[in-house]
C-alpha cells in the first residue's frame, strides 16, 4: 500500500493574479475600473513598484473569469500560486508565523495581509520559494491555510 501523504489535492494554494502596470498616473485606477465594470470584487490587493513599472497582485474568487476580463482589457497578467494563512488578529500573530518560516529556513519573497468579516482573524498572503515545505511547516503547527475554493467561505457572502 502506498501512503498518500502528499500530492496536489492536499495542497491549499490561493491563486493570486499578478498584473503588469506601467508607472504613470492613473494606471491603478484604470485597473480597478475594469474590475468594477465587470462586477469583480477583490478580496485582497497589493502593489509592488520598481522605478518605471509596478505589479498589482490581487486575490479574487473567480480567477478564470478575472483573467479573461483582464486579458480582454489588454493587460499582461499571470497566475501565481501563493499561500494564504489564517492567523489571530492580535499582537504577535504575524511574528509567530514568520518565526516558523524563518526557523525552517524558508525564504519569504513577499507578503501582505487582509481582513475578512470573521472577527479577530486576519489573513496573510505568503509568496515563498518553497511552497510545499512552507505548507508542511505551517500544517504541523495546525495553522489553517485557505485554498482558492474555500476563499469565498471566509467572507460569508
Amino acid at each position: 500500500m502506498i501512503a498518500h501523504t502528499k500530492g496536489g489535492n492536499t495542497m491549499e494554494y490561493t491563486q493570486q493574479i499578478s498584473v503588469f502596470l506601467e508607472n504613470r498616473p492613473g494606471t491603478l485606477a484604470e485597473l480597478t475600473d475594469v474590475l468594477w465594470k465587470n462586477n469583480i470584487d477583490m478580496r485582497a490587493m497589493c502593489v509592488a513598484d520598481a522605478m518605471d513599472f509596478g505589479i498589482a497582485r490581487i486575490i479574487v474568487d473567480d480567477v478564470y473569469e478575472t483573467m479573461t476580463v483582464l486579458k480582454d482589457a489588454g493587460y499582461v497578467c499571470q497566475i501565481t500560486k501563493v499561500l494564504t494563512v489564517e492567523m489571530a488578529d492580535e499582537p504577535g500573530g504575524l511574528s509567530k508565523i514568520l518565526a516558523l518560516l524563518g526557523s525552517a529556513g524558508i525564504n519569504l519573497e513577499y507578503t501582505y495581509a487582509f481582513l475578512s468579516r470573521k472577527k479577530d482573524t486576519a489573513y496573510l498572503v505568503l509568496k515563498v520559494a518553497e511552497p510545499e515545505k512552507a505548507e508542511a511547516v505551517l500544517r504541523a503547527e495546525h495553522i489553517r491555510l485557505i485554498g482558492q475554493e474555500t476563499l469565498q467561505g471566509i467572507f460569508g457572502d
Binding site: 506601467e22 513598484d49 505589479i55 497582485r57 499582461v76 497578467c77
Partner: peptide, 17 residues
C-alpha cells in the same frame, strides 16, 4: 510588456531590463 516577458517577481523583470 508581453506575457512571455512578464513575471510576478519584480527582480526578474528589472534584471531583464
Amino acid at each position: 510588456m508581453t506575457p512571455e516577458m512578464f513575471s510576478d517577481e519584480l527582480s526578474k523583470i528589472t534584471a531583464r531590463e
